[in-house]
Amino acid sequence: MSIVWVHEDAITLNHPVFWTAGPAVQPIFIWDTEEHDRRAYSLKRRVFIYECAHDLDIPIYAGRPCEILPVLAAGETIYTAGTPNLYVLDVVADLRKSHDVTVVDAPQLAHIPANTDTGRFFRFWNRAKKSALTHSSENQIETATAP
């Protein structure tokens, strides 16, 4: 059975990863206390994250994603939301040794040419402003579509 790994950067069921994965998937959240310890998250941060995950009414497992996800996926595809978070990137790289892993990015706020100089924010903003100020329903470049 395919799994959607809901990680701490996308604690939602309203993400394009679910449109890609289709209906026959099991979303799960993994409480990785070792990672929280490594990041020195305070109790209030942990409570907030737990409340976000609990609110989704999906199974929450405690442990390391690299140990839990392969067992639950049992060879099937693992899906997850894209993020620059190194922790997630490292887990995905490890999972890919044994599983097919599909990473799906959320739509971006702004669309800019690939060669844009982003050395300072306002250089980025000057190129991003037009698309950033356009509603998704009017933004022709937006490609993500609901099922």
Partner: peptide, 23 residues
């Protein structure tokens, strides 16, 4: 629950925010 599954958390860390998680 969070305390139970966070054994590495210091005993002195007891503050909870009034800001709640969730949609």
């Amino acid at each position: 629950r969070v305390k139970d599954i966070s054994p590495g958390l210091a005993d002195s860390d007891v503050i909870i925010s009034e800001i709640r998680g969730g949609r």
